[in-house]
């Protein structure tokens, strides 16, 4: 049963990603991207990592996709259509992408993932996630957690810098 669901979800992710990249209307592309993100969340639910699935839904599908759609509506002309790419480029880049994908997939298939001994350090529930985020010993994540705040601060200041009007 799970296997069937997995293939349905995987097909949805692939299909929507291709539609999102090939669509010539920017708002449609953004909407297809939203579907990709939601399908990814479904994949997480299937794997029973509920926390990650919730984060994926809230942050990516709920937050980022909406943000992208908003910024498209605010800045660009929604009716704008990308120009058609000439067929030589299409064929060439298609072949290149297929070749790259073929090499990657073949390499991935060669590895015997079943041989791996999984050492589960954190049981996937919210409480242990919280503890892992705040612990500073082995396997604790407080340092990256704090350093990301610097990234957010810097990105915010940088955004202000770009948006700021110079007085003249």
């Amino acid at each position: 049963m799970n296997v069937i669901f997995f293939y349905i979800i995987a097909a949805a992710i692939l299909g929507f990603s291709i539609l999102s990249v090939t669509s010539r209307k920017i708002l449609r592309a953004a909407t297809f991207l939203l579907f990709v993100l939601i399908s990814t969340a479904a994949l997480y639910f299937l794997l029973q990592v509920h926390f990650l699935a919730a984060v994926q839904l809230m942050v990516y599908a709920g937050g980022i996709a909406v943000l992208i759609i908003f910024s498209i509506l605010l800045t660009s002309n929604v009716d704008f259509t990308f120009e058609k790419i000439d067929w030589k480029k299409q064929v060439f880049s298609g072949l290149l992408a297929l070749g790259g994908a073929a090499i990657t997939i073949l390499t991935l298939l060669q590895f015997n993932f079943n041989s791996l001994v999984t050492k589960q350090t954190v049981t996937p529930d919210i409480r242990s996630f919280g503890r892992a985020f705040l612990s500073y010993g082995d396997g604790g994540f407080v340092l990256p957690f704090e350093v990301i705040t610097v990234l957010l601060l810097a990105a915010m200041v940088a955004a202000i810098m770009v948006a700021k009007k110079s007085k003249q």
């Binding site: 610097v150 810097a154 200041v157 940088a158 810098m161 700021k164 110079s166 007085k167 003249q168």
Partner: peptide, 24 residues
Amino acid sequence: ATENRVKVSEFYIVLFSTLLGMFY
């Protein structure tokens, strides 16, 4: 220069943050 003066502190904050990133 007059046209850049309004963004001086942002310049330093962002520059130092990127250096901090490199250190980490």
